[in-house]
Design a protein around this nucleic acid. Structure first.
Length: 103
DNA sequence: AGCGTGACTCCTC
DNA sequence: AGAGGAGCCACGC
């Protein structure tokens, strides 16, 4: 990880490193990006993410294992997670203890 | 250079 | 148990 890289760039790296079929939380990504308390900023990064991006932004959920998004984007992320084999049928909640990615 | 904002998180009532 | 408020960091204006 390059020290000269911006926070956004680091988030991209961490995001791309999340294995398929796993999820991560904003707080974890922020910590891995070098700023343990910048969870909100992680959301800002994903929001700025272009639609054509190959980054698995859908593998990012909040601390509760739920999608913090609202509206159609929420459904899209949920569908993407299901497509990766992640079970979100449990009231839209994901079992972090089972799918959460940790180094 | 300073203020406001947010796809978060934690603590308290 | 559920709702509300404060704290935190990086970025845009």
């Amino acid at each position: 990880m390059d020290a000269g890289a911006n926070f956004y760039q680091r988030v991209y790296q961490v995001l791309a490193a999340i294995p398929r079929g796993c999820v991560s939380t904003y707080g974890d990504i922020a910590m891995l990006a070098g700023s343990p308390c910048a969870a909100r900023q992680v959301g800002g990064v994903l929001k700025h993410l272009p639609e054509g991006s190959k980054l698995p932004w859908h593998r990012v959920v909040n601390r509760n294992g739920q999608i913090s998004l609202t509206g159609p984007d929420l459904s899209r992320q949920r569908e993407a997670l299901i497509a990766e084999g992640i079970d979100v049928s449990h009231e839209g909640k994901i079992s972090l203890s089972r799918y959460r990615w940790k180094i």
